[in-house]
Each structure stands twice: as structure tokens, then as C-alpha cells.
Simulated assay, not measured.
Amino acid sequence: MQNDWEDFYCKEVLSGSTPVEIVLETKHSLAFYHTRPYYEVHIAVIPKKHILLITIKEEDLEVMKDLCGVIKEAAAEMNEKYGACTVSTNIGEYQSNKHMHWHVHFGKRIRD
């Protein structure tokens, strides 16, 4: 598992150290425009609690339900505006940050 200092979402975003442009915020979730977008329109959606997707516990179900609702709303808005979007997440070595997060994006890839 990563050290706390490696968790950008807890250390920087949720603490307010790195300001973000919020798309939607609820009690348990935060959707914001990605700070380093890979796509023309790129939203990150995170739980406000540090959770790993593969270690979700029953006590996290309320957070997960809320998170899924925020992902759904962000995707629906993007689909309405652009006619399509991609919703994705990564696990394990594919994740640069182990704090569970989802990407909702549209358009061409703008960086590698």
C-alpha cells in the first residue's frame, strides 16, 4: 500500500491544498475537472473516504452508493452535452494513485 504522501486525492484535493474546479459534491463524493487532464474534457470522481476498490467493506456501501450516483450524474451530463463519454477506473499497477477514483471523459487524448 502507498504512503499517505503519495495519495494526491487525500493529501492535496480533499485537504484543499490543491484547488480544483468542482463539478458535483455530495456528503461522500467529489467530482472535479482533472488537474492534469488526459482528454479534452476530463472529470475525476473520488470518494471523500480513502477506499481501495478491491478492499471495499460492508461499512463502505453507503459511500459506494453515493459515489455511483455521482459517477452516473457526471456521465449523464457529459453524454447530454457531447453525445458520448467514457467511464473508467484502474486497479493495481495501472493506478498511479491507490485512492479509488473514476474517470469520466470525452474527446481526444491530449497527453500521454
Rank of each mutant, 00 (worst) to 15 (best):
36 R>T: 11
109 R>L: 11
44 A>L: 15
104 V>G: 11
70 V>R: 01
109 R>G: 04
34 H>E: 15
106 F>L: 02
90 N>Y: 06
71 I>G: 01
43 I>N: 10
55 T>P: 00
100 M>T: 10
108 K>D: 14
89 T>M: 14
96 S>K: 14
106 F>I: 11
69 G>K: 03
27 K>R: 14
85 C>G: 07
39 Y>R: 11
24 L>D: 13
20 V>A: 10
37 P>M: 03
19 P>D: 13
89 T>G: 06
50 H>I: 13
85 C>Y: 05
10 C>G: 14
19 P>W: 09
100 M>G: 09
66 D>S: 04
104 V>R: 04
27 K>N: 09
49 K>S: 08
108 K>L: 08
15 S>H: 07
108 K>I: 09
83 G>N: 03
23 V>H: 05
31 A>D: 01
4 D>N: 15
102 W>L: 08
5 W>P: 00
99 H>N: 02
38 Y>L: 15
19 P>V: 07
84 A>N: 15
61 L>Y: 04
10 C>S: 15
14 L>V: 08
93 E>V: 12
53 L>V: 02
56 I>R: 10
104 V>F: 01
19 P>K: 15
37 P>R: 04
106 F>R: 07
9 Y>R: 09
25 E>F: 02
17 S>T: 11
22 I>L: 01
11 K>F: 05
94 Y>K: 10
112 D>H: 07
57 K>D: 06
48 K>V: 09
109 R>N: 05
74 A>E: 08
8 F>P: 09
2 Q>R: 11
56 I>L: 12
14 L>K: 09
27 K>M: 02
25 E>K: 10
95 Q>T: 13
29 S>L: 05
32 F>S: 06
70 V>Q: 03
27 K>S: 08
91 I>S: 08
44 A>D: 09
8 F>A: 06
1 M>T: 06
60 D>Q: 05
12 E>N: 14
96 S>V: 15
105 H>F: 15
33 Y>G: 00
12 E>R: 05
2 Q>G: 06
80 E>C: 02
34 H>I: 00
112 D>R: 06
76 A>T: 09
46 I>H: 08
58 E>K: 12
107 G>A: 08
109 R>D: 05
29 S>D: 04
63 V>H: 03
